[in-house]
Design a protein around this nucleic acid. Structure first.
Lengths: 203, 203
DNA sequence: CTCGCTCTCTTACGGTGTAAGAACGTATCT
DNA sequence: AGATACGTTCTTACACCGTAAGAGAGCGAG
Protein backbone atom coordinates (compact mmCIF):
# COMPACT_ATOMS: atom_id res chain seq x y z
CA UNK A 1 0.00 0.00 0.00
CA UNK A 2 2.44 2.58 -1.23
CA UNK A 3 1.79 6.24 -0.63
CA UNK A 4 0.85 7.66 -3.98
CA UNK A 5 1.82 11.24 -3.24
CA UNK A 6 -1.61 12.48 -4.17
CA UNK A 7 -3.13 15.88 -3.61
CA UNK A 8 -6.17 17.78 -4.75
CA UNK A 9 -4.01 19.51 -7.32
CA UNK A 10 -2.48 16.36 -8.73
CA UNK A 11 -5.90 14.78 -8.98
CA UNK A 12 -7.29 17.78 -10.83
CA UNK A 13 -4.28 17.72 -13.12
CA UNK A 14 -5.03 14.15 -14.07
CA UNK A 15 -8.73 14.86 -14.40
CA UNK A 16 -8.11 17.75 -16.75
CA UNK A 17 -5.78 15.66 -18.84
CA UNK A 18 -8.35 12.90 -18.97
CA UNK A 19 -11.13 15.25 -19.99
CA UNK A 20 -9.00 16.92 -22.63
CA UNK A 21 -8.13 13.55 -24.05
CA UNK A 22 -11.40 11.64 -23.87
CA UNK A 23 -14.13 14.11 -23.03
CA UNK A 24 -16.05 14.78 -19.89
CA UNK A 25 -18.21 11.69 -20.33
CA UNK A 26 -15.12 9.53 -19.83
CA UNK A 27 -14.39 11.04 -16.46
CA UNK A 28 -15.35 8.58 -13.77
CA UNK A 29 -13.90 8.21 -10.33
CA UNK A 30 -12.65 4.71 -11.07
CA UNK A 31 -11.11 5.75 -14.34
CA UNK A 32 -9.50 8.78 -12.73
CA UNK A 33 -8.14 6.61 -9.97
CA UNK A 34 -6.67 4.19 -12.47
CA UNK A 35 -4.99 7.09 -14.21
CA UNK A 36 -3.27 7.86 -10.93
CA UNK A 37 -2.52 4.28 -9.99
CA UNK A 38 -4.98 4.28 -7.17
CA UNK A 39 -8.40 2.93 -6.28
CA UNK A 40 -11.42 5.15 -6.83
CA UNK A 41 -12.25 5.57 -3.18
CA UNK A 42 -8.85 6.99 -2.46
CA UNK A 43 -9.84 10.15 -4.28
CA UNK A 44 -12.53 10.76 -1.71
CA UNK A 45 -9.87 11.53 0.83
CA UNK A 46 -9.01 14.66 -1.14
CA UNK A 47 -12.34 15.62 -2.66
CA UNK A 48 -15.79 15.17 -1.15
CA UNK A 49 -17.45 13.92 -4.33
CA UNK A 50 -17.37 13.98 -8.08
CA UNK A 51 -19.04 17.35 -8.32
CA UNK A 52 -16.09 18.78 -6.47
CA UNK A 53 -13.84 17.41 -9.19
CA UNK A 54 -15.94 19.07 -11.86
CA UNK A 55 -16.06 22.34 -9.96
CA UNK A 56 -12.31 22.18 -9.59
CA UNK A 57 -11.89 21.72 -13.31
CA UNK A 58 -14.14 24.64 -14.14
CA UNK A 59 -12.27 26.78 -11.67
CA UNK A 60 -8.98 25.82 -13.18
CA UNK A 61 -10.10 26.49 -16.73
CA UNK A 62 -11.28 29.96 -15.80
CA UNK A 63 -8.37 30.79 -13.53
CA UNK A 64 -6.47 32.74 -16.15
CA UNK A 65 -9.39 34.85 -17.31
CA UNK A 66 -9.06 38.36 -15.99
CA UNK A 67 -9.92 41.85 -17.07
CA UNK A 68 -7.64 44.88 -17.30
CA UNK A 69 -9.86 47.94 -17.53
CA UNK A 70 -7.48 50.46 -19.03
CA UNK A 71 -8.14 52.76 -21.94
CA UNK A 72 -11.43 52.91 -23.88
CA UNK A 73 -13.89 50.48 -22.36
CA UNK A 74 -14.89 48.95 -25.65
CA UNK A 75 -11.33 47.95 -26.23
CA UNK A 76 -10.68 46.21 -22.95
CA UNK A 77 -14.13 44.66 -23.08
CA UNK A 78 -13.25 43.19 -26.46
CA UNK A 79 -9.92 41.99 -25.11
CA UNK A 80 -11.69 40.35 -22.21
CA UNK A 81 -14.02 38.51 -24.56
CA UNK A 82 -11.13 37.35 -26.68
CA UNK A 83 -9.18 36.00 -23.72
CA UNK A 84 -12.30 34.41 -22.32
CA UNK A 85 -12.86 32.64 -25.61
CA UNK A 86 -9.28 31.45 -25.67
CA UNK A 87 -9.63 30.01 -22.18
CA UNK A 88 -12.77 28.13 -23.17
CA UNK A 89 -11.23 26.80 -26.35
CA UNK A 90 -8.19 25.58 -24.48
CA UNK A 91 -10.34 22.87 -22.89
CA UNK A 92 -13.28 22.20 -25.18
CA UNK A 93 -14.16 19.09 -23.25
CA UNK A 94 -15.14 21.27 -20.32
CA UNK A 95 -17.57 23.37 -22.30
CA UNK A 96 -20.68 21.45 -21.32
CA UNK A 97 -19.74 22.09 -17.71
CA UNK A 98 -18.75 25.71 -18.15
CA UNK A 99 -21.96 26.47 -19.94
CA UNK A 100 -24.21 25.21 -17.19
CA UNK A 101 -22.41 26.36 -14.05
CA UNK A 102 -22.91 29.95 -12.97
CA UNK A 103 -19.94 32.10 -12.10
CA UNK A 104 -19.69 32.00 -8.35
CA UNK A 105 -16.03 31.51 -7.52
CA UNK A 106 -14.37 34.28 -5.52
CA UNK A 107 -12.02 35.01 -8.39
CA UNK A 108 -14.88 35.22 -10.84
CA UNK A 109 -16.81 37.59 -8.64
CA UNK A 110 -13.77 39.78 -8.23
CA UNK A 111 -13.28 39.99 -11.98
CA UNK A 112 -16.91 40.95 -12.36
CA UNK A 113 -16.62 43.62 -9.71
CA UNK A 114 -13.55 45.16 -11.29
CA UNK A 115 -15.11 45.30 -14.72
CA UNK A 116 -18.40 46.61 -13.38
CA UNK A 117 -16.65 49.35 -11.44
CA UNK A 118 -14.83 50.49 -14.55
CA UNK A 119 -18.05 50.53 -16.56
CA UNK A 120 -19.82 52.61 -13.95
CA UNK A 121 -17.12 55.23 -14.39
CA UNK A 122 -18.00 55.22 -18.08
CA UNK A 123 -21.53 56.24 -17.34
CA UNK A 124 -23.29 52.88 -16.97
CA UNK A 125 -25.53 52.32 -14.01
CA UNK A 126 -24.48 49.40 -11.79
CA UNK A 127 -27.31 47.32 -13.20
CA UNK A 128 -26.41 48.20 -16.76
CA UNK A 129 -22.78 47.43 -16.06
CA UNK A 130 -23.64 43.93 -14.93
CA UNK A 131 -25.88 43.50 -17.93
CA UNK A 132 -22.98 44.33 -20.17
CA UNK A 133 -20.70 41.89 -18.41
CA UNK A 134 -23.22 39.08 -18.35
CA UNK A 135 -24.04 39.74 -21.96
CA UNK A 136 -20.41 39.56 -22.98
CA UNK A 137 -19.76 36.41 -20.99
CA UNK A 138 -22.82 34.56 -22.22
CA UNK A 139 -22.16 35.77 -25.72
CA UNK A 140 -18.71 34.22 -25.64
CA UNK A 141 -20.04 30.99 -24.19
CA UNK A 142 -22.68 30.79 -26.86
CA UNK A 143 -20.20 31.44 -29.63
CA UNK A 144 -17.72 28.89 -28.40
CA UNK A 145 -20.46 26.32 -27.93
CA UNK A 146 -21.33 26.70 -31.58
CA UNK A 147 -17.69 26.58 -32.49
CA UNK A 148 -16.40 23.62 -30.53
CA UNK A 149 -19.90 22.39 -29.99
CA UNK A 150 -20.87 18.85 -30.63
CA UNK A 151 -21.57 16.84 -27.54
CA UNK A 152 -19.40 15.76 -24.61
CA UNK A 153 -16.97 13.42 -26.25
CA UNK A 154 -15.94 15.76 -29.09
CA UNK A 155 -16.10 12.55 -31.10
CA UNK A 156 -17.48 12.35 -34.59
CA UNK A 157 -15.28 14.50 -36.84
CA UNK A 158 -18.09 15.34 -39.21
CA UNK A 159 -20.86 13.01 -40.28
CA UNK A 160 -21.76 15.67 -42.84
CA UNK A 161 -25.42 16.33 -42.23
CA UNK A 162 -27.27 15.97 -45.50
CA UNK A 163 -27.13 19.47 -46.92
CA UNK A 164 -28.88 19.14 -50.22
CA UNK A 165 -27.92 22.08 -52.46
CA UNK A 166 -31.32 21.87 -54.12
CA UNK A 167 -33.12 22.18 -50.85
CA UNK A 168 -30.68 24.53 -49.13
CA UNK A 169 -28.89 26.57 -51.78
CA UNK A 170 -27.71 29.40 -49.55
CA UNK A 171 -26.51 27.05 -46.87
CA UNK A 172 -24.68 24.92 -49.41
CA UNK A 173 -22.99 27.93 -50.95
CA UNK A 174 -21.79 29.17 -47.59
CA UNK A 175 -20.45 25.75 -46.71
CA UNK A 176 -18.60 25.62 -50.00
CA UNK A 177 -17.09 29.01 -49.17
CA UNK A 178 -15.44 27.56 -46.11
CA UNK A 179 -18.08 27.89 -43.42
CA UNK A 180 -17.17 25.88 -40.38
CA UNK A 181 -13.43 25.96 -40.89
CA UNK A 182 -11.27 27.20 -38.00
CA UNK A 183 -10.56 30.54 -39.61
CA UNK A 184 -14.24 30.98 -40.20
CA UNK A 185 -14.97 30.58 -36.52
CA UNK A 186 -12.47 33.25 -35.69
CA UNK A 187 -14.01 35.51 -38.32
CA UNK A 188 -17.49 35.05 -37.05
CA UNK A 189 -16.40 35.68 -33.51
CA UNK A 190 -14.75 39.01 -34.13
CA UNK A 191 -17.53 39.97 -36.53
CA UNK A 192 -20.20 39.32 -33.95
CA UNK A 193 -18.18 40.68 -31.06
CA UNK A 194 -17.66 43.95 -32.89
CA UNK A 195 -21.35 44.14 -33.59
CA UNK A 196 -22.24 43.54 -29.99
CA UNK A 197 -19.73 45.88 -28.41
CA UNK A 198 -20.61 48.60 -30.87
CA UNK A 199 -24.23 48.33 -29.92
CA UNK A 200 -23.66 48.42 -26.18
CA UNK A 201 -23.88 51.83 -24.60
CA UNK A 202 -25.10 53.50 -21.42
CA UNK A 203 -28.63 54.85 -21.53
CA UNK B 1 -49.28 -8.34 -19.80
CA UNK B 2 -51.69 -5.63 -20.79
CA UNK B 3 -51.00 -3.53 -23.86
CA UNK B 4 -50.01 -0.14 -22.58
CA UNK B 5 -50.97 1.81 -25.68
CA UNK B 6 -47.54 3.30 -25.97
CA UNK B 7 -46.05 5.21 -28.86
CA UNK B 8 -42.99 7.30 -29.51
CA UNK B 9 -45.10 10.38 -28.96
CA UNK B 10 -46.58 9.27 -25.67
CA UNK B 11 -43.15 8.33 -24.41
CA UNK B 12 -41.73 11.70 -25.35
CA UNK B 13 -44.69 13.38 -23.69
CA UNK B 14 -43.91 11.61 -20.45
CA UNK B 15 -40.20 12.27 -20.79
CA UNK B 16 -40.77 15.97 -21.27
CA UNK B 17 -43.04 16.09 -18.29
CA UNK B 18 -40.48 14.26 -16.23
CA UNK B 19 -37.67 16.57 -17.29
CA UNK B 20 -39.76 19.67 -16.67
CA UNK B 21 -40.59 18.40 -13.22
CA UNK B 22 -37.31 16.89 -12.00
CA UNK B 23 -34.60 17.96 -14.40
CA UNK B 24 -32.76 16.09 -17.08
CA UNK B 25 -30.59 14.29 -14.55
CA UNK B 26 -33.67 12.49 -13.27
CA UNK B 27 -34.50 11.09 -16.68
CA UNK B 28 -33.59 7.43 -16.76
CA UNK B 29 -35.11 4.70 -18.83
CA UNK B 30 -36.30 2.84 -15.75
CA UNK B 31 -37.80 5.94 -14.26
CA UNK B 32 -39.43 6.88 -17.52
CA UNK B 33 -40.86 3.41 -17.81
CA UNK B 34 -42.27 3.58 -14.32
CA UNK B 35 -43.94 6.86 -15.21
CA UNK B 36 -45.73 5.03 -18.01
CA UNK B 37 -46.50 1.91 -16.02
CA UNK B 38 -44.09 -0.18 -18.01
CA UNK B 39 -40.67 -1.81 -17.67
CA UNK B 40 -37.66 0.07 -18.96
CA UNK B 41 -36.89 -2.29 -21.79
CA UNK B 42 -40.32 -1.80 -23.27
CA UNK B 43 -39.30 1.67 -24.33
CA UNK B 44 -36.68 0.18 -26.59
CA UNK B 45 -39.39 -1.08 -28.85
CA UNK B 46 -40.21 2.51 -29.77
CA UNK B 47 -36.84 4.20 -29.47
CA UNK B 48 -33.43 2.73 -30.21
CA UNK B 49 -31.70 4.17 -27.15
CA UNK B 50 -31.69 6.94 -24.61
CA UNK B 51 -30.02 9.41 -26.93
CA UNK B 52 -33.00 9.08 -29.21
CA UNK B 53 -35.18 10.16 -26.33
CA UNK B 54 -33.03 13.20 -25.72
CA UNK B 55 -32.96 14.05 -29.41
CA UNK B 56 -36.71 13.73 -29.49
CA UNK B 57 -37.07 16.12 -26.59
CA UNK B 58 -34.80 18.69 -28.21
CA UNK B 59 -36.74 18.39 -31.42
CA UNK B 60 -39.97 18.88 -29.64
CA UNK B 61 -38.78 21.91 -27.72
CA UNK B 62 -37.62 23.58 -30.90
CA UNK B 63 -40.56 22.54 -33.02
CA UNK B 64 -42.36 25.83 -32.67
CA UNK B 65 -39.41 28.03 -33.45
CA UNK B 66 -39.72 29.44 -36.93
CA UNK B 67 -38.79 32.58 -38.75
CA UNK B 68 -41.03 34.84 -40.85
CA UNK B 69 -38.79 37.04 -42.94
CA UNK B 70 -41.12 39.89 -43.77
CA UNK B 71 -40.39 43.56 -43.47
CA UNK B 72 -37.12 45.05 -42.24
CA UNK B 73 -34.70 42.25 -41.50
CA UNK B 74 -33.67 43.63 -38.13
CA UNK B 75 -37.25 43.39 -37.02
CA UNK B 76 -37.96 39.83 -37.97
CA UNK B 77 -34.51 38.81 -36.72
CA UNK B 78 -35.37 40.30 -33.36
CA UNK B 79 -38.72 38.54 -33.39
CA UNK B 80 -37.00 35.28 -34.15
CA UNK B 81 -34.66 35.73 -31.21
CA UNK B 82 -37.55 36.54 -28.91
CA UNK B 83 -39.54 33.47 -29.93
CA UNK B 84 -36.44 31.32 -29.70
CA UNK B 85 -35.85 32.52 -26.18
CA UNK B 86 -39.46 31.80 -25.26
CA UNK B 87 -39.14 28.27 -26.58
CA UNK B 88 -36.02 27.67 -24.53
CA UNK B 89 -37.51 29.12 -21.38
CA UNK B 90 -40.59 26.95 -21.75
CA UNK B 91 -38.46 23.92 -20.87
CA UNK B 92 -35.49 25.09 -18.86
CA UNK B 93 -34.62 21.54 -17.91
CA UNK B 94 -33.69 20.87 -21.50
CA UNK B 95 -31.21 23.72 -21.70
CA UNK B 96 -28.14 21.64 -20.98
CA UNK B 97 -29.12 19.47 -23.90
CA UNK B 98 -30.08 22.28 -26.24
CA UNK B 99 -26.86 24.07 -25.59
CA UNK B 100 -24.63 21.19 -26.54
CA UNK B 101 -26.43 19.71 -29.53
CA UNK B 102 -25.92 21.35 -32.89
CA UNK B 103 -28.91 22.20 -35.07
CA UNK B 104 -29.22 19.34 -37.48
CA UNK B 105 -32.87 18.46 -37.67
CA UNK B 106 -34.54 18.89 -41.05
CA UNK B 107 -36.83 21.53 -39.66
CA UNK B 108 -33.95 23.42 -38.14
CA UNK B 109 -32.01 23.39 -41.36
CA UNK B 110 -35.02 24.62 -43.26
CA UNK B 111 -35.49 27.52 -40.87
CA UNK B 112 -31.84 28.39 -41.29
CA UNK B 113 -32.13 28.26 -45.05
CA UNK B 114 -35.15 30.52 -45.12
CA UNK B 115 -33.57 33.11 -42.88
CA UNK B 116 -30.27 32.96 -44.75
CA UNK B 117 -32.00 33.44 -48.07
CA UNK B 118 -33.79 36.52 -46.80
CA UNK B 119 -30.57 37.97 -45.45
CA UNK B 120 -28.78 37.43 -48.74
CA UNK B 121 -31.44 39.57 -50.37
CA UNK B 122 -30.56 42.26 -47.85
CA UNK B 123 -27.00 42.37 -49.11
CA UNK B 124 -25.30 39.82 -46.88
CA UNK B 125 -23.06 37.23 -48.46
CA UNK B 126 -24.16 33.63 -47.82
CA UNK B 127 -21.33 33.22 -45.33
CA UNK B 128 -22.22 36.45 -43.57
CA UNK B 129 -25.85 35.43 -43.50
CA UNK B 130 -25.03 32.23 -41.69
CA UNK B 131 -22.77 34.13 -39.35
CA UNK B 132 -25.67 36.36 -38.43
CA UNK B 133 -27.97 33.42 -37.84
CA UNK B 134 -25.47 31.45 -35.80
CA UNK B 135 -24.64 34.54 -33.83
CA UNK B 136 -28.26 35.21 -33.03
CA UNK B 137 -28.96 31.62 -32.07
CA UNK B 138 -25.91 31.23 -29.87
CA UNK B 139 -26.55 34.62 -28.39
CA UNK B 140 -30.00 33.56 -27.31
CA UNK B 141 -28.71 30.29 -25.94
CA UNK B 142 -26.06 32.07 -23.96
CA UNK B 143 -28.52 34.57 -22.56
CA UNK B 144 -31.01 31.95 -21.54
CA UNK B 145 -28.31 29.83 -19.97
CA UNK B 146 -27.41 32.78 -17.77
CA UNK B 147 -31.05 33.40 -17.06
CA UNK B 148 -32.36 29.96 -16.23
CA UNK B 149 -28.88 28.68 -15.63
CA UNK B 150 -27.91 26.73 -12.59
CA UNK B 151 -27.34 23.10 -13.24
CA UNK B 152 -29.58 20.30 -14.47
CA UNK B 153 -32.03 19.93 -11.65
CA UNK B 154 -33.00 23.64 -11.42
CA UNK B 155 -32.85 22.90 -7.71
CA UNK B 156 -31.53 25.29 -5.11
CA UNK B 157 -33.64 28.43 -5.23
CA UNK B 158 -30.80 30.71 -4.23
CA UNK B 159 -28.04 29.87 -1.80
CA UNK B 160 -27.11 33.55 -2.00
CA UNK B 161 -23.45 33.51 -2.89
CA UNK B 162 -21.59 35.64 -0.40
CA UNK B 163 -21.67 39.08 -2.00
CA UNK B 164 -19.91 41.24 0.51
CA UNK B 165 -20.84 44.89 -0.15
CA UNK B 166 -17.45 45.95 1.14
CA UNK B 167 -15.64 43.73 -1.31
CA UNK B 168 -18.06 44.09 -4.21
CA UNK B 169 -19.82 47.45 -3.91
CA UNK B 170 -20.98 47.74 -7.50
CA UNK B 171 -22.22 44.19 -7.61
CA UNK B 172 -24.06 44.65 -4.33
CA UNK B 173 -25.70 47.83 -5.50
CA UNK B 174 -26.90 46.23 -8.70
CA UNK B 175 -28.29 43.28 -6.76
CA UNK B 176 -30.13 45.64 -4.45
CA UNK B 177 -31.61 47.33 -7.50
CA UNK B 178 -33.27 44.10 -8.53
CA UNK B 179 -30.65 42.32 -10.59
CA UNK B 180 -31.58 38.75 -11.15
CA UNK B 181 -35.31 39.20 -10.89
CA UNK B 182 -37.48 37.94 -13.77
CA UNK B 183 -38.11 41.41 -15.14
CA UNK B 184 -34.43 42.08 -15.06
CA UNK B 185 -33.72 39.10 -17.26
CA UNK B 186 -36.19 40.34 -19.79
CA UNK B 187 -34.63 43.79 -19.66
CA UNK B 188 -31.15 42.51 -20.18
CA UNK B 189 -32.26 40.35 -23.04
CA UNK B 190 -33.87 43.09 -25.06
CA UNK B 191 -31.06 45.47 -24.14
CA UNK B 192 -28.41 43.10 -25.40
CA UNK B 193 -30.44 41.93 -28.36
CA UNK B 194 -30.92 45.49 -29.52
CA UNK B 195 -27.22 46.12 -29.18
CA UNK B 196 -26.35 43.03 -31.17
CA UNK B 197 -28.86 43.49 -33.97
CA UNK B 198 -27.93 47.14 -34.29
CA UNK B 199 -24.31 46.22 -34.75
CA UNK B 200 -24.90 43.55 -37.34
CA UNK B 201 -24.68 44.69 -40.93
CA UNK B 202 -23.48 43.48 -44.31
CA UNK B 203 -19.93 44.44 -45.22
C1' DC C 1 -56.71 -24.60 -33.42
C1' DT C 2 -52.61 -22.80 -34.83
C1' DC C 3 -49.63 -19.79 -36.84
C1' DG C 4 -47.40 -15.44 -36.80
C1' DC C 5 -46.96 -10.79 -35.42
C1' DT C 6 -46.78 -7.12 -32.10
C1' DC C 7 -45.76 -5.85 -27.89
C1' DT C 8 -43.98 -6.51 -23.06
C1' DC C 9 -41.21 -8.64 -19.68
C1' DT C 10 -37.15 -11.19 -17.42
C1' DT C 11 -32.59 -11.80 -16.84
C1' DA C 12 -27.99 -10.47 -17.16
C1' DC C 13 -23.62 -7.71 -17.80
C1' DG C 14 -20.61 -4.18 -17.02
C1' DG C 15 -20.61 0.31 -15.78
C1' DT C 16 -21.57 4.41 -12.31
C1' DG C 17 -21.12 7.34 -7.49
C1' DT C 18 -20.17 6.69 -2.89
C1' DA C 19 -21.05 5.02 2.34
C1' DA C 20 -18.67 2.35 5.90
C1' DG C 21 -15.02 0.63 7.78
C1' DA C 22 -10.86 -2.37 7.71
C1' DA C 23 -5.89 -2.46 6.99
C1' DC C 24 -1.54 -0.71 5.97
C1' DG C 25 2.90 2.49 6.49
C1' DT C 26 5.04 5.78 8.86
C1' DA C 27 6.13 9.05 12.69
C1' DT C 28 6.24 9.89 17.31
C1' DC C 29 6.48 8.82 22.17
C1' DT C 30 7.71 6.02 25.98
C1' DA D 1 12.66 -1.69 20.94
C1' DG D 2 7.87 -1.63 21.42
C1' DA D 3 3.46 0.59 21.50
C1' DT D 4 0.42 4.02 19.94
C1' DA D 5 -1.55 7.24 16.90
C1' DC D 6 -2.38 9.16 12.53
C1' DG D 7 -2.63 9.80 7.67
C1' DT D 8 -3.54 7.37 3.66
C1' DT D 9 -5.22 3.64 0.91
C1' DC D 10 -8.00 -0.36 -0.05
C1' DT D 11 -12.11 -3.70 0.27
C1' DT D 12 -16.62 -4.53 0.29
C1' DA D 13 -21.20 -3.31 -0.53
C1' DC D 14 -25.46 -0.97 -2.29
C1' DA D 15 -28.42 1.12 -5.39
C1' DC D 16 -28.59 2.89 -9.65
C1' DC D 17 -27.56 3.30 -14.75
C1' DG D 18 -28.00 1.89 -20.22
C1' DT D 19 -28.98 -1.90 -22.86
C1' DA D 20 -28.14 -6.83 -25.26
C1' DA D 21 -30.58 -11.14 -25.73
C1' DG D 22 -34.25 -13.68 -25.71
C1' DA D 23 -38.50 -15.59 -23.52
C1' DG D 24 -43.38 -15.02 -23.08
C1' DA D 25 -48.10 -12.98 -23.49
C1' DG D 26 -51.81 -11.44 -26.08
C1' DC D 27 -54.14 -11.01 -30.35
C1' DG D 28 -55.94 -11.24 -35.24
C1' DA D 29 -55.88 -14.04 -39.50
C1' DG D 30 -55.97 -18.39 -41.88
Amino acid sequence: MRRAGLSRERILDAALELVDRDGVAALSMRRLGKELGVEAMTLYYYLPNKDAVLDGLVDRALAGVTVRPEGPWREWARAFAVSFRAALLAHPGLLPLLATRPVSTPGGLLTVEIAAGALVEEGFSPTEALHVITTLATFVIGQVLAEAGRTPGHDQPDPEPPVDPARHPVLAEALAAGLGTPGDHEDRFVYALDALVTGLAPR
